[in-house]
């Protein structure tokens, strides 16, 4: 969990593109289908009549199959929701002061880090591959002056728009900082230094 600072507000919350759920959805679909296919194959194998009768006598096999299939579907459901929870709780918040990266790597692995706007030096966008290009999603790299810290906003929808949003947020933050700084200087009786262009 993270705590917002005083007078800090979340302006945007960003998640990965829902396309990232495509692979788990396919896996789940195959998992749902696999027992049905196996059952179909089993039905296709001719069974001697006396043996069929014997099965009928031993118990209603259909109910047993429904029992195991229900438990299997319960397992598949848990898998789907683990994937969805990991996807949904993996989020980036852009506040009026910083970017907060809440990374949900697995169901038991959570990592939170933040990057203040004044430390950001460069923002780059990376759109890789034909699907990412057509669906308009990609990675946004937010780099700081130091070589060690970098936040990567993975597989986000409309990465260029996000880059612009962050840039605007940084500009607003600097403007606000400058105004507050000027106000403090005025209050303490120190004149503002001239701007760099001499005005």
């Amino acid at each position: 969990m993270f705590k917002l600072e005083e007078d800090e507000k979340i302006k945007h919350s960003i998640r990965r593109h829902s396309f990232v759920m495509f692979k788990p959805a396919n896996v789940a679909f195959l998992m749902v289908l696999a027992p049905l296919v196996l059952y179909g194959l089993y039905q296709a194998i001719p069974i001697p009549e006396d043996f069929s009768e014997r099965i009928a006598m031993e118990g209603q096999i259909g109910f047993l199959m429904v029992f195991f299939y229900s438990l299997w579907l319960l397992f598949v459901l848990a898998y789907i929701f683990i994937e969805w929870t990991t996807y949904y709780l993996d989020v980036w918040h852009i506040t009026n002061k910083r970017i907060i990266d809440v990374e949900q790597i697995g169901i038991f692995h959570r990592d939170t880090k933040s990057l203040r706007f004044e430390r950001i030096q460069d923002i780059t966008v990376e759109v890789k591959g034909i699907i990412a290009t057509f669906l308009n999603f990609g990675d946004v790299h937010v780099q700081t002056a130091g070589a060690t810290r970098e936040i990567i906003i993975y597989q986000v929808r409309k990465p260029y728009k996000l880059k612009k949003m962050i840039t605007v947020a940084i500009d607003e933050s600097s403007e606000r900082f400058y105004k507050e700084h000027s106000k403090r200087m005025r209050e303490s009786g120190i004149p503002n230094p001239p701007a760099s262009d001499g005005t």
């Binding site: 209603q60 429904v66 029992f67 229900s70 438990l71 319960l74 459901l77 929701f81």
Partner: peptide, 29 residues
Amino acid sequence: IKLMQGIYFAVSGFLVLLALGSLFAFLYS
């Protein structure tokens, strides 16, 4: 989140009941 929670419990509850019902039907019918 609340919506997905509702879906999860509705579907999983149904599956548990289905498993229980089919087990009863298999064993005691």
